[in-house]
Write a protein that binds this DNA or RNA. Structure first.
Length: 420
DNA sequence: TCTGGGGTCCTAGGACCC
DNA sequence: TCTGGGGTCCTAGGACCC
């Protein structure tokens, strides 16, 4: 049996945690640049605010209902997520952190435990010790656990737990689940399934396997088997190293100046190098892109992209910055209004397996020490406390984040103030 | 005026090997 | 007159997830 623990309206709940007066009030959290809605409290959902809605389109609605609006604060959400996962980890070591707000647990070992009580205790503990409400679904496969979780959100609001431990319950849950809400069914498959009159998860779980495999490949085959209660996916406790790492941002304002693009690209390259070092990897391919705002039909459009192979895989900030700068030289065209820039690194190998070059005169050990020292300082004293000058100091290209809450739990200067 | 930022896995087809 | 039977690696693109 698998359990999935899902934090309810996670980002909205994190904001509410430090502003209890927002209990029972509608809350939305906006994407980077305050662009569109990426999280909603139940009250905001009830107002009909859709996931992904551009903020400017629903401006009046937000004001009318006095919705509390927040810019996203990933330092806060990341820290709260970590706390939730730690509490869950005390219940069982068999935990897979699936996303910032979800974890799968393997509860098969708990054959003699009452799973309902077990899950209920976990929920209460997380709520008490971290303050985040959760919902828990338990079933024979990950896909069914997801379905059980969804069911619990609607049908078991007070307990927040649903254990799918009989065939009757499986049928009950799957019959109530629209096929497009099945984990692994996206818009394309929904359209195709609908055309074949498959509207519910129950119907999907009873289709012919060969027929499904023809259209949806082995992925579809596994999906249907999982719905039938045959687990095809195991718990993955050790997260695998990333095979590609992307850092990109939209700009707060449109940019045409090359210098600002250079600063942004250098910053993104810095971030990619940090992420590489964090997972003890090096990359052998670097890609840089810049593009204009495709929504602005009146503007001339341009999308520049260039990949540079790196002879000896690296995790060096300076090396990635240099390569990224030369890539930018090739793709930059003056006269365009740029909206977004990014750096992507791939062909990732473990640092211990990097093939060195016979002809390189570089002292890699020495540079490694420098990078370690930089990482240490920045971890201790705050991001970018020491950084390469190429990343600039003006930050004119920065995001718009007008409604960001304080980093209550990660910055000593922004602690919650109880009384002035 | 204003529209996010990351990731994964799988498949088909081409080029090549013996 | 007749033209095998296995493989691998790579890439682009499509589907999905949060």
């Amino acid at each position: 049996m698998f359990a999935i623990v899902d934090c309810n309206n996670f980002y909205a709940s994190c904001e509410r945690l430090f502003q209890p007066k927002l209990e029972h009030q509608p809350i939305v959290v906006l994407s980077n640049n305050d662009g569109c809605v990426i999280a909603r409290s139940n009250e905001a959902k009830a107002l009909g605010i859709k996931m992904g809605a551009p903020a400017f389109e629903i401006q009046t609605l937000l004001e009318q209902h006095q919705v509390a609006v927040f810019s996203s604060n990933y330092a806060l959400y990341g820290d709260i997520s970590h706390r939730v996962m730690q509490v869950l980890g005390r219940f069982t070591p068999a935990i897979e952190i699936y996303s910032i707000d979800e974890a799968f647990l393997d509860v098969a070992q708990l054959a003699f435990t009452d799973l309902e009580t077990y899950a209920s205790t976990m929920r209460t503990t997380v709520l008490q010790q971290v303050g985040i409400p959760t919902t828990i679904g338990i079933a024979a496969s990950k896909t069914l656990a997801k379905a059980a979780n969804r069911y619990a959100k609607k049908a078991c609001k007070t307990t927040g737990v649903f254990v799918m431990d009989t065939e009757a319950k499986r049928q009950e849950v799957l019959e109530a689940l629209p096929v497009e809400d099945v984990w692994g069914i996206g818009r394309k498959y929904q359209v195709w399934l609908d055309a074949h009159n498959i509207k519910t998860a129950w119907q999907l779980s009873n289709t012919n396997l060969a027929w499904i495999q023809k259209k949806m490949g082995v992925v579809g085959l596994r999906l249907v088997k999982e719905l039938q209660g045959i687990a095809c996916y195991d718990l993955e406790e050790q997260p695998a190293a990333k095979q590609g790492i992307m850092t990109s941002r939209s700009f707060g304002n449109l940019i045409s100046e090359k210098k600002l693009l250079q600063e942004a690209i250098a910053t993104h390259a810095t971030r990619c190098a940090e992420k590489l070092r964090k997972q003890h990897s090096c990359c052998a391919l670097l890609q840089v892109f810049i593009h204009t705002n495709a929504y602005r039909k009146q503007d001339a459009q341009y999308h520049g992209v260039l990949s540079i192979p790196i002879p000896t895989a690296t995790d060096s900030t300076s090396e990635l910055i240099q390569l990224a700068m030369s890539a930018l030289d090739h793709i930059y065209k003056p006269g365009f209004l740029y909206k977004k820039a990014g750096v992507y690194v791939s062909e990732i190998v473990p640092r211990s397996q990097v093939q060195l070059s016979l002809f390189s005169s570089k002292d890699r050990g020495k540079e490694q020490q420098l990078l370690e020292a930089m990482d240490k300082i920045n971890t201790l004293m705050g991001r970018d406390k020491v950084r390469y000058a190429a990343a600039g100091i003006s930050r004119k290209w920065k995001l718009r984040q007008e409604k960001k809450s304080p980093c209550y739990t990660t910055n000593v200067n922004e602690l919650l103030r109880i009384k002035n």
